[in-house]
């Protein structure tokens, strides 16, 4: 049996918001360590890897591994009904046909209970070994979201170029070009505002802008985002959770 209670429903709301536009159906795999999701978008360009660690829950119990096949659009309709500050509890039997979603306000004078039908989904698990990256950038997630939105207006591709001194985001479109250059810096008072660039080898990669625009829907999960890049390899975009992470692996574009 699964019983997981969040101190606030806001975490689950943000997670669903972050992934629902990339994937529609996915398995939530529940183990004693927490909840994981691995899913790939329909075009097979973007892979999502989510871990909501046991410590993200106020109370968590999962005796046996349980798979919840969830339609995220339906789940989102229900999860939106809770107030962000409500307790959120997920309950499922060992071989469940549905999952119970319970919201309780903190004064305990209102309890809302919903049941979501589960689906039997094919799981197609990809093996992601520890990758070696040539460059790692950590920056404020809101700044990365703005750069993505701004440059996406010019082109369907977004180029990321990392040199020793800086990182350049660049787009080249029909009516013009644009780029944003960031240098590393440390903000002692607000560490989350810092920009950290670690580079072992220079990087020049191009990605589909629409996929990055989907990735930045994770912005509300974390003050900062970490971008890991390697030549001719998928990029990793990571938003840290209180215990766990939401990772996006994005396949690059190459010259024909």
């Amino acid at each position: 049996m699964l019983e997981g209670k969040f101190e606030e429903s806001s975490l689950m709301k943000k997670v669903v918001d972050a992934i629902k536009d990339s994937v529609k159906l996915c398995n939530f795999n529940c183990t004693e360590h927490g909840v994981t999701v691995q899913a790939v978008d329909d075009s097979r360009v973007l892979l999502i890897s989510l871990l909501i660690g046991e410590a993200s829950f106020e109370e968590y119990r999962c005796d046996r591994n349980i798979t919840l096949g969830i339609d995220l659009e339906s789940f989102n309709k229900i999860i939106k009904n809770g107030n962000s500050s409500d307790f959120l509890t997920l309950i499922a039997e060992d071989s469940p046909d549905n999952v119970l979603i319970i919201f309780e306000d903190k004064k305990k004078d209102r309890v809302s209970e919903y049941s979501l039908k589960l689906m039997d989904l094919d799981s197609d698990f990809l093996q992601i070994d520890d990758m070696e990256f040539d460059a790692t950038i950590t920056m404020p997630s809101s700044e990365f979201a703005k750069i993505t939105r701004d440059l996406k207006t010019l082109s369907e591709s977004l180029q990321i170029i990392v040199t020793k001194e800086n990182v350049k985001f660049s787009s080249d479109g029909d009516f013009g070009t644009g780029n944003v250059v960031l240098k590393g810096f440390v903000d002692m008072d607000k560490p989350d505002e810092s920009i950290k660039i670690d580079m072992a080898r220079p990087i020049n990669l191009t990605f589909g802008a629409k996929y990055i625009a989907d990735i930045v829907k994770g912005t509300s999960l974390s003050e900062s985002v970490t971008i890991k890049l390697a030549d001719k390899s998928p990029a990793l975009f990571e938003y840290k959770l209180p215990s766990g992470f939401l990772r996006f692996y994005l396949a690059p574009k190459f010259d024909e």
Partner: peptide
Amino acid sequence: KKQQTTINEFFPRD
């Protein structure tokens, strides 16, 4: 013109 790759080209199925 750049060609989009897919994630399957990099990560094998388990």
